[in-house]
Simulated scan of single mutants.
Amino acid sequence: MAKSPPVFRFAPSPNGRLHLGHALSALTNAQLAAHLGGRLLLRIEDIDLTRCRPEFEQGIHEDLGWLGLRFAGEIRRQSEHFADYRAGLERLAGLGLIYPCFCSRREVKAAVRDRELETGEPWRRDPDGAPLYPGSCRDLSEEEGRRRMAAGEPYLLRLDMAQALARLGAELSYTVFDAEGGERLVAAEPERWGDVVLARRDTPTSYHLSVVIDDALQGVSHVVRGRDLEAATDIHVVLQRLLDLPTPLYHFHPLLADETGQKLAKSRQSRSLAELRAQGASADALRRQLGFT
């Protein structure tokens, strides 16, 4: 039986215009897909309905077309598939691994500060630098949780990481691949993330939940993304195992930084591809600048 060709995906969010970092990621995906004889899909990650806008999605298509990129198959828009994510969340809830959390960010910070003062020791941080959730709502009774949710209190749905890891038992790992076809096994460390958020009252999913479900439903076999998301792969491996989904191979490319040394980001108003184009930059020159011929 012939082996299926590998499937890659580029998955931007339409919450701003693409910048050079996005171009690097898209071109790296395209290069590796071509090198390995694979297909490259386009996915629009627009679960944040308050920040994602149609004009930004149109900008994505303009920028990718200008770069000369072509994609296979239909475009998947996450906002059209909330039912898929809800089903995954319900399955995790059925395993007893989800609980509602009613703590605001301010309350979490206050609880952590109190514990630091009490113990005299710094509280653990996750790989992004945020304090681990101290579990204030983890032991609420189901009855109280349902009552507060029904009363309209803002809430998050968290994964009980300790229970999830206890259920999975064996150590978790995933495979990283390189452009030459080499592979190496990497041990996952999901406990360093604590009880991650998987959904909110107004959004029935999160990046972590939606991305693993999308990758499985789209048959993605190779995930290529920036090193800033390398640590988050720990969470994705846990969810893949819990939901009986395949774990793709991963490749993490370097990040681009601005003149201050900070990584390019929409939130920092990094210069967009549209701005570069308006200033006379050519796609060929930009590709050469990023190391692509």
Rank of each mutant, 00 (worst) to 15 (best):
residue 6 P to I: 02
residue 13 S to T: 15
residue 17 R to E: 14
residue 23 A to G: 04
residue 31 Q to H: 14
residue 40 L to D: 12
residue 42 L to F: 02
residue 60 I to V: 15
residue 61 H to V: 00
residue 64 L to Y: 06
residue 66 W to G: 11
residue 72 A to D: 15
residue 79 S to P: 04
residue 80 E to A: 13
residue 87 A to G: 07
residue 97 L to I: 04
residue 99 Y to W: 09
residue 99 Y to G: 05
residue 100 P to V: 05
residue 103 C to N: 11
residue 104 S to D: 02
residue 109 K to H: 14
residue 115 R to I: 00
residue 115 R to D: 12
residue 120 G to Q: 04
residue 126 D to Y: 11
residue 131 P to I: 04
residue 134 P to Y: 09
residue 134 P to D: 11
residue 137 C to G: 03
residue 142 E to Y: 03
residue 144 E to T: 12
residue 146 R to V: 06
residue 148 R to V: 02
residue 149 M to D: 03
residue 149 M to V: 15
residue 149 M to Y: 09
residue 153 E to A: 14
residue 155 Y to R: 07
residue 160 D to G: 08
residue 170 A to L: 09
residue 171 E to K: 14
residue 171 E to T: 14
residue 179 A to E: 15
residue 191 E to S: 13
residue 191 E to L: 13
residue 192 R to D: 01
residue 195 D to C: 02
residue 203 T to F: 01
residue 212 V to D: 01
residue 221 S to R: 05
residue 225 R to I: 11
residue 226 G to N: 09
residue 231 A to E: 11
residue 234 D to Q: 08
residue 236 H to A: 08
residue 253 H to I: 01
residue 254 P to A: 14
residue 255 L to I: 04
residue 256 L to F: 11
residue 260 T to F: 04
residue 261 G to P: 00
residue 264 L to I: 09
residue 283 A to H: 02
residue 285 A to L: 07
residue 290 L to A: 00
